[in-house]
Amino acid sequence: MNDNERRAIEADCQRLINLYVNLNDAQDWEAVANLYTADARFARPSKPDEFIEGRAAILESFTARPARAQRHVIANTVVDVVDADNAKAFSVIVLFMGEAAEPGELPVMNAKSPLVGTFTDKLVRSAEGWRFAERVGGLDFKP
Rank of each mutant, 00 (worst) to 15 (best):
D3N: 10
D3W: 08
D3H: 11
D3A: 15
N4W: 09
N4L: 14
N4T: 15
E5Q: 14
R7M: 11
I9H: 02
I9M: 04
I9C: 04
I9T: 09
E10S: 08
A11D: 12
A11Y: 12
A11K: 12
A11C: 10
D12E: 15
C13E: 06
R15D: 13
I17Y: 05
L19A: 14
Y20N: 01
Y20W: 05
V21H: 07
N22L: 04
N22C: 03
N22Y: 13
L23Y: 07
L23W: 09
A26I: 07
Q27W: 05
A31G: 03
A31N: 05
A31C: 02
V32F: 08
V32R: 06
V32Q: 07
T37M: 01
T37V: 00
T37Q: 02
A38M: 03
D39E: 13
D39L: 03
F42T: 04
F42D: 02
P45D: 00
P45V: 01
S46D: 09
K47H: 02
K47C: 00
P48G: 03
F51G: 02
I52E: 06
G54Q: 07
I58A: 10
I58C: 11
L59D: 05
L59R: 14
S61Y: 13
S61L: 12
F62D: 00
F62R: 01
T63Y: 11
A64M: 04
A64Q: 06
A64S: 13
A64G: 09
R65E: 10
R65K: 12
P66L: 13
A67G: 01
R68N: 06
A69N: 04
Q70T: 14
Q70H: 07
Q70Y: 10
Q70M: 15
H72P: 00
H72K: 08
V73H: 13
V73R: 06
I74F: 13
A75E: 00
T77H: 11
V78Q: 06
D80G: 06
D80T: 15
D80E: 12
V81C: 13
V82N: 03
D85W: 10
N86G: 02
N86S: 13
A89P: 12
V92K: 11
V94F: 04
L95M: 13
M97G: 03
M97V: 09
E99Q: 14
E99N: 13
P103C: 01
G104V: 12
G104L: 10
G104D: 10
E105Q: 15
L106F: 15
L106H: 14
V108N: 05
M109R: 14
N110T: 02
A111R: 11
K112T: 11
S113A: 11
L115A: 08
L115F: 08
V116W: 08
G117C: 01
G117E: 01
G117S: 00
T118R: 05
T118N: 06
F119W: 10
T120I: 14
T120M: 09
T120F: 10
D121L: 11
K122M: 13
K122T: 15
V124D: 01
R125I: 11
S126Q: 05
S126C: 09
S126E: 10
E128P: 00
G129D: 03
W130N: 01
F132A: 02
F132Q: 02
A133D: 07
A133Y: 06
V136N: 02
L139I: 02
L139D: 01
F141Q: 00
K142M: 05
P143K: 00
